[in-house]
């Protein structure tokens, strides 16, 4: 084929080597292909019991990918991409029903990691990863906007509860509260709602001006390097503020 492709077989092979751990190899080998996972999966049930949707098929495809190594081809990768991102939410329900306890979420995550090596990641997830690196959150919210939002929510809340505050970077607080970046972006009221709860419960809490987004879409994208960086942001905030607990938003 003379066409220029974006495939990088060398990188794919490296990714295969990097991702092949003992659990994965064991799981992909011992899967008895019994099909008992089929009706535990919402993709299978919601798509008129399309057998191609069952969890074990994801295992089969990842095994094929691992075996292909640098023989990876465009056609395979395209199908693989849609399966691995579009037909598994890594909810782990099937694992509870698998006699061997094969963890399809880990297998899917590996599959996504292989896609990452080819830059084949859903556009919107790619954008969020770039945003984490630039702004520390998935929604491209600047620190200024973040603090403005918190202050605005504090004012809103104080109209009803004059004593309530949204403490920012309060060192030594008991609880560091972190949010999903969708909150300041789409649901700012969530923040005043939680502030009200903390105020009424008499909690000693704070929010961080830096590490405050507790989502980690890089993990779902399969980009584990980025995922480690992102979780470090909140960890750094927690250590800097010397809090005892980090609370994750609803």
């Amino acid at each position: 084929m003379a066409e220029v492709t974006a495939l990088d077989p060398k990188k794919f092979k490296e990714a295969v080597k990097d991702k092949s751990n003992a659990r994965l190899k064991m799981w992909l080998e011992i899967c008895a292909h019994c099909g008992l996972c089929a009706d535990t999966c919402h993709f299978y049930l919601a798509n008129d019991k399309d057998p191609e949707m069952i969890p074990a098929v994801k295992g089969r495809k990842v095994l094929e990918a691992l075996r292909k190594k640098d023989k990876i081809d465009e056609e395979f990768l395209e199908d693989f991409y849609w399966t691995i991102y579009g037909e598994c939410t890594m909810c782990r329900r099937c694992t509870m029903f698998c006699p061997f306890g094969i963890d399809i979420a880990t297998i899917t995550s590996t599959g996504r990691g292989l896609c990452v090596s080819q830059g084949k990641v859903p556009e919107n997830l790619k954008k969020t990863i770039a945003s984490y690196y630039e702004h520390g959150n998935q929604m491209e919210i600047t620190q200024e906007e973040w603090i403005d939002t918190l202050q605005w929510m504090e004012e809103e809340l104080q109209e009803e509860l004059p004593g309530a505050t949204i403490p920012i970077d309060k060192k030594g607080a008991k609880v560091l509260y972190t949010v999903n970046a969708r909150e300041p972006k789409f649901y700012p009221m969530d923040i005043s709602q939680v502030a009200r709860v903390f105020y009424l419960a008499g909690e000693d809490w704070t929010m961080s001006s830096k590490g405050w987004d507790d989502t980690n879409l890089a993990m779902f994208a399969g980009d584990l390097k980025a995922a480690a960086y992102i979780s470090q942001l909140v960890r750094d905030a927690a250590e800097e503020l010397e809090v005892r607990r980090v609370a994750i938003t609803e």
Partner: peptide, 12 residues
């Protein structure tokens, strides 16, 4: 059951 929005499905 999963709602179908997990694993990054919403932001995708």
């Amino acid at each position: 059951f999963c709602c179908g929005g997990g694993g990054g499905a919403i932001p995708m």
